[in-house]
């Protein structure tokens, strides 16, 4: 058994961390919220780096890599609240499999693609010009008009989309759609993992520095045990994200359960991490200038993307009981 990242993955993660920590940051997320500044590193930079297009075949200008590789990068993107999300790239790469021109457009940035779900706000609608959705079982593609509302997390580019004239791409596309959604959920969970892991670091650092009653607050079990519960949740989420990504590449039969579990665990873990770390920081954690709320915003937003956590837990239960998911 070798359920662990290989050296190649660790190297990839290291490179992605260097790139992303230099090109995105919680400060950029705050600026997006304050001033409506664009998300960082932004679509063009993400494409230029090659990270966004890892799962697009090499023959169409992508990296020809695996979902696991993309997940490893997505974790690093989540740590610094990078935008746009890698989720749409991952989903579109699956949905556009039979459309070389569009795939090439996705890979070279001439198409900015977002995927529209029925029940969720549209992730990275802002900045996208090409939309994919499922209409009566048919995968359709078209331009759309985006209306932004007042976002909780300005790094997610959420908007309402009114589709223009669409082209039918694939009939009977439901299985393809579900596969893409599951890959998307896996990458979303990987971004959540990175955000939650970064929050835990912030909480632990502060609990070592901050003193009350003559000792570091991290020595009090009331504080220590809260952070340990976050640690345990983060490590379990890491295991589920790796499993789901591995399943997407190697064991499609396991992907439904693994991706639903990863999505659900990401939603609850990121929320637990954000709320715990705000509490550990006390008053300073509740200020605009502190980074904690930027991650908290991510938690409160991401839980609704690609189906909410309630739907994901329900799907896990149905799959576990051997029922069809839908």
């Amino acid at each position: 058994m070798n359920f662990d990242l290989d050296q190649e993955h660790l190297d990839l993660a290291g490179g992605a961390r260097d790139f992303l920590s230099g090109s995105a940051s919680p400060a950029a997320a705050r600026a997006a919220l304050d001033e409506g500044a664009g998300v960082r590193p932004g679509r063009a930079e993400l494409i230029k780096s090659g990270y966004a297009t890892i799962t697009i075949p090499e023959s169409h200008g992508g990296g020809g890599g695996t979902v696991l590789q993309l997940a490893v990068v997505a974790e690093q993107a989540g740590r610094v609240l990078a935008g746009p999300s890698l989720v749409n790239f991952a989903r579109a790469a699956v949905l556009l499999e039979g459309f070389p021109d569009r795939l090439a457009g996705l890979a070279d940035g001439s198409l900015a693609v977002a995927v529209i779900d029925d029940a969720s706000p549209v992730l990275d609608a802002i900045g996208s010009d090409t939309f994919l959705t499922l209409r009566d079982g048919t995968l359709v593609c078209g331009p759309g008009e985006v209306m932004a509302r007042r976002p909780i997390d300005a790094t997610r580019g959420l908007g309402d989309v009114t589709l223009g004239e669409t082209t039918d791409l694939v009939r009977d596309a439901r299985p393809l759609w579900r596969k893409a959604e599951r890959v998307g959920r896996t990458i979303l969970a990987a971004e959540g993992l990175g955000a939650a892991a970064r929050l835990l670091e912030m909480g632990v650092e502060y609990a070592k520095e901050r003193h009350t009653f003559g000792r570091p607050i991290g020595s009090y079990q009331a504080v220590k045990h809260m952070l340990v519960d976050v640690y345990v949740a983060v490590e379990q989420l890491r295991s589920l994200v790796w499993w789901a990504a591995w399943a997407a590449d190697r064991a499609p039969g396991e992907l439904p359960l693994a991706s639903a579990a990863a999505k659900a665990a990401a939603a609850t873990t990121l929320e637990l991490a954000a709320e715990t770390v705000i509490q550990v920081h006390g008053g300073i954690g509740y200020t605009w200038e502190h980074d904690a709320h930027l991650y908290w915003r991510r938690a409160k937003t991401d839980r609704f993307l690609l189906g909410d956590d309630v739907a994901a837990f329900d799907e896990v239960a149905r799959l576990a009981m051997g029922e069809a998911a839908r």
């Binding site: 295991s239 499993w243 579990a261 837990f313 329900d314 239960a317 009981m321």
Partner: peptide
């Protein structure tokens, strides 16, 4: 069941 199952899988 979903919550317990996800925790057990984790």
């Amino acid at each position: 069941l979903g919550r317990g199952y996800v925790a057990a899988l984790g």
